[in-house]
Write a protein that binds this DNA or RNA. Structure first.
Length: 584
RNA sequence: GCGCCCGUAGCUCAGUCGGAUAGAGCACCAGAUUCCUAAUCUGGGGGUCGUGGGUUCAAAUCCCGCCGGGCGCACCA
């Protein structure tokens, strides 16, 4: 249960009742009414802003509305106390029994707890990574990969039907460079001495093995032939191998895609022409000459007529070219076709996850979607900012030119999949992220992965201990439904349950905002509450989870610990991280 | 020059649909260990929320102008 949206509807019903009873004038707009957790603990469990929101509309003083609402809410069986405070807040405190029922709900639901129906089964397409198949994934790709997958999991948890998609940029000049690079290495593998690799090709080590594999498959048959002869077979082999490599890297992060969509297939099937015909019919394509960007004229600028998309009509800054001077389509033209394809496949919501260097590309794609689909489809572009790789606080040098850079696989090797996934979600997607290879393995509160995992391990250690020392609890298969939860009356215990009960609300808000990092911060807070409460047992043995000689109390506290482990595991699952049973 | 993102404690960052006295970690200072993991916890000092206006009962949050930083800027992908 989302405690707050649940109570919000209770409040709205009461307001409607007040309108029916003519306590309030009829026809008030209720949308802005919110039931939210108050910042101050002293303000109860739920703060309601209804009186302030309605005061102007109803032409009544807020305190008067608040008093009347408070009076009605006091009749609710779950409500312990209602106070009117400040400018007209209605602060509600709920009975302990309500919170005990939330814990019972968690225990009955297991790690499915927090699942929501706000998505209502709507289809949503999340496109992420989409790295050019010209080399191994680097750490920046890893951030997009983790972000996209966690967002997909989050949306699934919130009731959406998600398609994970990877757009393969297997057409264009960068692929040509890859093909020539591979053929160069292939000649070397066959014993030729082609000399120094020409400018603009990919010098990285990873092509040696691919060239070797190509030689094993085809022998020397592609030597001493014109490029036109060997280009297609080398290209197909190269792309296949690069994608296999990329898929392996992603697999090691626990990421799988539903759809790999080839850019070349769009061209081959005439989909680019089809999409542009659509735009032509809409009258948003014309031939014109662009002005050079102000204050920054490119060296080789020359005014020339181009085929342009009238992007300015849909909020972009300038109109965008669709054809290169050699007559072939621009990348943007193909991308229009790709998004048109997604729209035609029936997704009302599209999400693209891009790197920071593509920020300037957002408006034109959104403009294209507006032109193609009107309001039938919307695109949210999530920009993942750069990752700085550090080692003990010192930046690790990366140079794409020399082919030396920290690959995603290197980092996964060094710190493990779960650490990579967690750390990538400890910042908002649009903030820069420092990834310190040493610090992420440290065992301290500074390191959120450790801190959260430690909380889970502690919870599990209590269970193990009880199983060993109190076999009468039958903890191999405890009947949590029998736990006497009413024994949980300590403020710290109730605080923990309240934190657990915030999880569904956190999932929904994160899903709505497309912000999976909120789950990581929530788990960090929950872990903090747990560690804090745990240590109260140092000073006061009566507060420990295991109370010798008090079976009921121990059983109830054990249920709380189980609830904590369950919610941590549920949150980690959204992040794609496995909870640990014990620390090593 | 234009567009997008960002600016919150000394540092790194949270801050929900606009909500009450703006939070956490690190660092600094002072404490807790016959105890289920002290790998942790408790307390303290530390803020013109870059800046100036505006909207609102209410602004870190929304709008506009400046200042500072990042990314990008026709025929690359």
């Amino acid at each position: 249960m989302n405690v707050f949206s649940n109570f919000q509807s209770i409040v709205k019903k009461e307001i409607e009742g007040m309108m029916d009873a003519a306590v309030l004038p009829a026809g008030l707009e209720l949308d802005a009414i919110a039931a939210a957790p108050p910042r101050e603990a002293g303000h109860g469990d739920i703060a309601i802003n209804a009186a302030m929101v309605l005061a102007k509309q109803a032409k009544m003083p807020p305190r008067k509305i608040a008093d009347a609402l408070a009076e009605r809410l006091r009749r609710d069986a779950d409500v312990a106390a209602v106070e009117v405070a400040g400018p007209g807040f209605v602060n509600v405190a709920l009975r302990d029994g309500f919170w005990h029922a939330r814990l019972a709900e968690i225990l009955a639901t297991g790690t499915a707890y927090g699942a929501s129906t706000i998505g209502a089964g709507a289809r949503i397409n999340v496109e992420f990574v989409s790295a050019n198949p010209t080399g191994p994934l680097h750490v920046g790709h890893g951030r997009g990969a983790v972000f996209g997958d966690a967002l997909a999991r989050l949306l699934e948890k919130a009731g959406y039907q998600v398609t994970r998609e990877y757009y393969i940029n297997d057409a264009g000049g960068q692929i040509d460079a890859l093909v020539r690079s591979l053929h160069f290495r292939y000649r070397e593998a066959c014993g030729e001495k082609p000399g120094i690799m020409p400018e603009g090709l990919y010098p990285g080590d990873y092509l040696f093995a691919v060239a070797e594999a190509f030689k094993v498959r085809d022998g020397t048959k592609w030597l001493n032939l014109p490029e036109a002869t060997w280009f297609a077979p080398v290209r197909d082999f190269a792309i296949e191998q690069m994608m296999a490599m990329i898929r392996t890297d992603l697999d090691r992060l626990g990421i799988q895609f539903d759809v790999f969509f080839s850019e070349r297939s769009l061209h081959a099937a005439g989909r680019v022409e089809a999409a542009l015909t659509r735009l032509e019919q809409a009258g948003v394509i014309y031939t014109g000459v662009l002005e050079p960007p102000k204050g920054m004229v490119p060296e080789d600028w020359e005014p020339r007529p181009q085929t342009l998309f009238r992007a300015t009509q849909f909020g972009d800054d300038v109109d965008r070219p669709l054809k290169k001077s050699d007559g072939s389509w621009t990348y943007f033209a193909a991308d229009i076709a790709y998004h048109f394809d997604k729209i035609e496949r029936g997704f009302p919501t599209l999400i693209d996850v891009w790197g920071a260097d593509h920020g300037g590309y957002v408006k034109r794609v959104q403009a294209a979607i507006a032109a193609l689909a009107g309001d039938k489809a919307e695109l949210d572009v999530k920009i993942c900012n750069m990752v700085r790789v550090l080692d003990q606080g010192v930046p690790v040098k990366m140079s794409k030119r020399s082919g030396e850079f920290v690959t995603l696989a290197d980092v996964v090797d060094a710190v493990g999949k779960d650490v990579v996934r967690f750390i990538m979600l400890t910042r908002r997607n649009d903030a820069m992220l420092d990834f310190d290879l040493t610090k992420v393995l440290e065992q301290s509160r500074e390191n959120p992965v450790f801190y959260v995992q430690y909380a889970h391990a502690r919870a599990r250690s209590v269970a193990r201990r009880v199983a060993a020392e109190h076999p009468d609890f039958e903890l191999a298969a405890p009947a949590w439904g029998q736990a006497p939860l009413a024994r949980l009356g300590h403020a710290g215990e109730l605080q923990l349950i309240k934190r657990l009960a915030h999880f569904p609300e956190t999932v929904e808000a994160a899903a709505r905002a497309h912000e999976p990092h909120r789950i990581a911060f929530y788990l960090y807070d929950l872990a903090g509450d747990f560690h804090s409460h745990w240590n109260l047992g140092n000073d006061d043995p009566a507060l420990r989870f295991i109370v010798p000689g008090n079976r009921d109390l121990t059983f109830a506290r054990l249920a709380l610990v189980q609830g904590i482990a369950t919610v941590i595991a549920a949150g980690l699952a959204v992040m794609g991280v496995a909870p640990v049973e014990e620390m090593r």
